[in-house]
Amino acid sequence: MKATVLGAAGYVGGELLRLALGHPGLEVVQATSRRHAGRPVGLVHPHLRHHAGLLFTEPDVLEPVDVLFSALPRGELARVHDQITSVARTVVDLGPDFRDPEGPGGAAYVTGLPELYRGALAGATRISVPGCMATAAAVAIRPLVAAGLTQDDVVVDARTGSSGAGGEPSRATHHPERQHAMRIYKATGHRHEREIARLCGVRARMTVTAVPLVRGVQVVAHLRPPRPVSRTEVWSAFRDAYADEPFVRLVAHRSGLHRLPDPQFLYGGNFVDLGFDVDDDGRRVVVVAALDNLVKGAAGGAVQSLNVAQGLEEQTGLDFPGLHPV
């Protein structure tokens, strides 16, 4: 399949290029960037410098392709949507423009989260990948909601690295401000709350902290079950939901150093690690999910969703397992 990456100079665009260039079913024909048009991709994404012949192109002249990945900022894809859909059979959006099915144009898009929407993704030609923190939270929470193991709102404590803020610098991402930060930048009312509620069917009360990482999201969700529950019940709920999922790993060890999910082991990979613990009295379940925000939380989720939509092996092009130590 011929593929274009729109907004290819950003961090998500770079990850899309890395994954697409290694995908046996994709041929990257365009990587667009208005600022860097004419320059080799490797000048912006140094880990891709061995693809010496691939140059950024202007986004105004697009070749017909089988699939177009959009890593454009908020509002940009919606602005050029008619032009895009005239040249691309399948559109995979990694931005927020079409995530809300009740928003403008959103009804045409299928949520790009195979763990929850695999059936709807089969054959889909419009795919909208959820936000990285919403992905982690939804994977963590929804099986327990489905199993009736929460009775009211879920408290979601999310920690995120700096790459989630994108490739454009700001005062908040400036190194002296960010290096040692444990900055709670949104204590209440984060926009992903609505997305999590839509994906999970329960209200999420979310707090987000910027931590001194480049990649990585870790979400800690606190659920209050309607009755005391055991660890075994929670294991069953997650096993029922994810036993056959190729990219969900259950990590809830009772011993050892790394008992619960930690994003450091997920860098570059498409896994989401999921773990939990239960208070001694069974009245609180703490669920932990971790992922690489640029991969499972963006580019990897997009490629995985495309694989499902096209009937390809779901893991195609996504077999990198991560690193240890980092």
């Binding site: 660890r231 075994t232 294991w235 069953s236 096993r239 009772r254």
Partner: peptide
């Protein structure tokens, strides 16, 4: 096969 007391797996 024996059942795991933690997760009920085999």
């Amino acid at each position: 096969m024996t059942v795991c007391p933690e997760c009920r797996g085999a």
